[in-house]
Design a protein around this nucleic acid. Sequence first.
DNA 1: AATGAATGAGTATTCATTCAT
DNA 2: TATGAATGAATACTCATTCAT
Lengths: 210, 210, 210, 210
Amino acid sequence: MATQKKLTRAEQKALRPAQILDAAFEEFVRSGFAGTRVEDIADRVGVTKGTVYVYFETKEKLFEAMINHFSVPFHELLAIADRLSGSATDRLISILGLFYEQIPEDRATRELTRLVISEGQRFPDLIDRHHDQFIAPIIAKIDALILEGVASGEFRPIPVEFSDIVVAPILTTTVLRLIFDDRRVPTPNKEAFLRTYFDLLFNGLLAKPH
Amino acid sequence: MATQKKLTRAEQKALRPAQILDAAFEEFVRSGFAGTRVEDIADRVGVTKGTVYVYFETKEKLFEAMINHFSVPFHELLAIADRLSGSATDRLISILGLFYEQIPEDRATRELTRLVISEGQRFPDLIDRHHDQFIAPIIAKIDALILEGVASGEFRPIPVEFSDIVVAPILTTTVLRLIFDDRRVPTPNKEAFLRTYFDLLFNGLLAKPH
Amino acid sequence: MATQKKLTRAEQKALRPAQILDAAFEEFVRSGFAGTRVEDIADRVGVTKGTVYVYFETKEKLFEAMINHFSVPFHELLAIADRLSGSATDRLISILGLFYEQIPEDRATRELTRLVISEGQRFPDLIDRHHDQFIAPIIAKIDALILEGVASGEFRPIPVEFSDIVVAPILTTTVLRLIFDDRRVPTPNKEAFLRTYFDLLFNGLLAKPH
Amino acid sequence: MATQKKLTRAEQKALRPAQILDAAFEEFVRSGFAGTRVEDIADRVGVTKGTVYVYFETKEKLFEAMINHFSVPFHELLAIADRLSGSATDRLISILGLFYEQIPEDRATRELTRLVISEGQRFPDLIDRHHDQFIAPIIAKIDALILEGVASGEFRPIPVEFSDIVVAPILTTTVLRLIFDDRRVPTPNKEAFLRTYFDLLFNGLLAKPH
DNA sequence: AATGAATGAGTATTCATTCAT
DNA sequence: TATGAATGAATACTCATTCAT
């Protein structure tokens, strides 16, 4: 009946690694790799330092495991993107909307971005992973859609090597939220922001473009 | 050519603070605040730890002094912007070009952005300064230009609270260079990048916008 | 005989704080607060510096804990004093004898006196404690006895605010032993010393006092 | 005319050592040998550290020189004592009065006593000097007077090896003022204190001594 | 004589890691 | 599995001392 509170020892133990990884995320995000003490992570879980070392050999390996643990949920989004139908414009709008939800609005992804920027030089693998799992797929998807839209005459011909310009507002929003954390720069109203973003993206700023 | 080594004590001394600040910049950028050892900074200058403490009371104050030292050269750019003439479009193009040169292409500004992202939580002043000296003036300038262009009928009416969308490609380029540092993502050809950026910004993506 | 080395971790641990405090006493007494290195204390215990910090947060707190640890055994003596009976003279003699044993002859109390004199300016609490726990009770006890003896006609009327004159030989002996530590000034023969002390105290120096 | 302000460089320099020694006295008294920084002494004089080293080779030698500088003015007092006349009682009273003025009431002598107690273990010479220049002459003088008084029948026969009992109130007052520095224990009224001291010393505490 | 920049050995303190229980 | 006592290497910071000017 009380299946919630009555965790067996085994179940308790099965939870430990995830608890530690969650705590590690919070602490590494707060203080960076060098500034985080293993004991802070242990304290957050409510265990002692030694326990952390039962599950993770070193602070570095714990950091890397934490990154892996929080780097997963992007494949689904790309799969969804593949299943979209409609005009290139419609699909680009849908996909950028999904990215917006999954990058600046998702705390884990957002903070992972911070760690990539701050710890990437110490952990080159981190950058490689981030490129392969996030940047490259995003760019590839946008590139493909643009090429398609250009081919169908829906879009003007754009040099495809600059398609990061198209997603720039998403990364920019992410970074601004990382920096100001809603203090200085208010989190924008999502719908209004996206409306303006798409309006500008598709129609440009000029009143009467030739 | 051999005028290098012949510095008097007094000359040597006058240079020390700047030398230390330069070295501090390199080391803090490489390893972050917590990961940098004062001795690394001293070694880079070619002096001993003690000498660093002759000029800066603590590692924290050295960090802050280094930030101040490298945060200067933005006022001029804003002054230049004020002196521009021509259509709103022309002036927006000029100003974004200047920003491009001063932010992603200037190493100091670029790396300062990294430090704001990575150390901002430990040094809240850093964020406040960065907001007041960089973000706010940039946004204000863009806002003003857009309002002007809209008033003159040159631009379509755009909700001004989202003008960071307009500069997004600049911050995005900055961050991508911070992360990939020319390894994965090649530094874009400046002229081609700006051409595409401005083309998209002013005309939008659609073949025939209504 | 070889039961010494066979201590369990737990037993070892229970002893640690006291071991460290004992070692701290020796080192602080030898070299003063500023002149003592935490490592010297650790070495004396046979552990590493880090271990000292497991038990005491800072050198200052260790010093204060050491003072507290060695400041205890005075209440009993005052309790004994309260239970004495006999003439005021008899009781004064008994009590001064007890003080003599507990102050100059007890190494801990003696050396604590040194630390009060040498470190009192840096640790004002030390002085307050010493006053409240040692000086004030002693003076109060002597005052009470004298007033009693005066009331009963046993003693001549003496201005009670100078009753430290009565105990002066005890503090003087303490200080001389601190300074000369049996090198120059031989430790006096206890019985002979007390006999002379009391003879002088009660009868004075003059052959035929009027 | 204005001989005061117009110190020649030479005069200025002749003053330096004494200024430094005075400053050293204040700082060493405040913080002890290990706790005092040469720079604190220099600051107090208004010169830089380097200047201190022009006059004194090391901190230790400066400490020793300071002790010598402040240890002088005791010979005169002993000379005065030799010139006294009158009964043994009269002369003992005179001499103890002089000691009272020269030891607890003279700041230099008082604080020197503190340094003897606190730094004597690190500077054994200090103790030897103090013994030879202060303790031994005082005791010798008292011993001589007592023996004389006993010989003339003025004093009861007292074992001379305990004559420090006779001067104990003076050292006790010194130490109490060192510890409490007029905060807890008020500086006693000199005349009243001496009157009680001498009354007790010569007549004892008992109402009717036999 | 005086300065003060520079040194380098030292010292308090921290913290990742180990290991006996 | 979990603990937490212990370690020791590291690191920020201090300070007596030196020396070119």
